[in-house]
């Protein structure tokens, strides 16, 4: 009965998401594409924070995926969707390498260490014109090849087509992340976060689980980067600088990171606020100002994020996670 209702609700959401771009202007459709990619980015950021460490290098890891996918497709002629996957894997691999030094650090030191590692990668892009294109970056990145599926002619230059593509990819990734979190693996992530020593006493290799969360999150971030690179057709070091990282941080903190949907909510609300409301009022230049203010205000007055407001409205299903982890949840 309840699962039937849930199914209906999901179908409703799906239809709404598919219909959404048709009610928007061209520039709003483009914003929608980036918003969808950013949802993947911020959701992957939350996966990273699940084990308790906050990184300042996540956007650079996204950039690794973007640069790698761009290079594979442009220089080696790899089929674009395959290049995207390879880009994501490259980001995951780089993250794996970084995890050895970084997970020797904790808290503030991890934050600074991840920032330093990210900056080094970004400066390497800037410094080496071969193959990274230096300050100007890489341009002329091939787009996703057009396909005709009969019901819809996908011309990926067009934001609506690309939005559908991105929507499908991002939905699948979110489903994967959701499955991971609602599994014994996800429970172990939480355990490592709250009491890593106790988890180790129970036989959990805390370092391995931190690395696992970091690598998975980085893979998804890399994919987000690849999706962005092949839409814009260009990447450069500035698009992955600390300011972009602060935006991601703001989405996550304003939304709250205790729930799966918190950071996504933060990303959507702030993007809508910025692009629709501020742009509508002609204030779009004030984006950093507003983000800075919101960051401070939410740390001060809404430390648990927007999700805590939702939590007050919706009845809490405290045991649903446990039920999922032990496999007792009825199949929908």
């Amino acid at each position: 009965m309840r699962s039937g209702l849930a199914l209906l609700a999901w179908i409703g959401v799906g239809v709404a998401l598919i219909a959404l771009p048709h009610g928007l202007s061209f520039s709003q459709q483009e914003i929608l594409v980036f918003l969808t990619i950013n949802v993947l980015l911020v959701a992957s950021y939350r996966m990273l924070t699940l084990t308790g460490e906050w990184s300042l290098g996540h956007v650079v890891i996204m950039g690794v995926g973007a640069y790698a996918s761009a290079l594979y497709s442009k220089h080696f002629g790899v089929f674009v969707p395959a290049a995207m996957l390879l880009g994501a894997m490259t980001a995951a691999l780089i993250a794996m390498g970084l995890s050895y030094p970084l997970f020797r650090m904790k808290g503030f030191y991890f934050l600074i260490g991840s920032f330093a590692a990210g900056e080094i990668i970004r400066l390497l892009w800037k410094r080496f014109r071969e193959p990274f294109g230096g300050v100007k970056g890489i341009t002329g990145i091939p787009p996703v090849p057009d396909v005709n599926l009969g019901i819809w002619d996908f011309v990926f230059f067009d934001p609506i087509s690309y939005y559908y593509f991105v929507l499908a990819v991002v939905s699948f990734c979110l489903w994967l992340m959701w499955r991971i979190e609602r599994s014994p693996v996800g429970l172990t992530f939480h355990a490592v976060h709250w009491q890593d020593k106790l988890a180790e006493a129970a036989g959990v290799n805390a370092r391995a689980y931190r690395t696992l969360a970091f690598v998975i999150a980085s893979g998804f971030a890399g994919l987000a980067g690849a999706l962005q690179a092949h839409y814009i057709g260009a990447v450069n070091p500035t698009s992955f600088d600390i300011e972009q990282m602060v935006f991601v941080l703001t989405w996550a903190i304003v939304g709250g990171t205790a729930t799966f949907y918190g950071p996504i909510l933060g990303c959507i609300v702030l993007t809508v606020l910025n692009e629709i409301v501020l742009r509508g009022l002609g204030f779009e230049q004030t984006r950093p100002l507003i983000y800075g203010l919101l960051l401070i205000l939410s740390v001060l007055f809404l430390p648990k994020g927007l999700e805590s407001l939702v939590g007050r409205v919706l009845p809490r299903r405290a045991t649903s996670r446990t039920r999922a982890i032990i496999g007792a949840e009825e199949k929908a």
Partner: peptide, 29 residues
């Protein structure tokens, strides 16, 4: 009382079963 305070009692005990039932991420997905 060092525990996973934010998790439920059952979830705490589930962490204890980690050694015997080692999670596998692919099987979990």
């Amino acid at each position: 009382s060092t525990l996973f305070a934010e998790l439920s009692v059952l979830e705490n005990a589930l962490i204890g079963t980690h050694i015997r039932f080692r999670p596998n991420i692919f099987a979990a997905i």
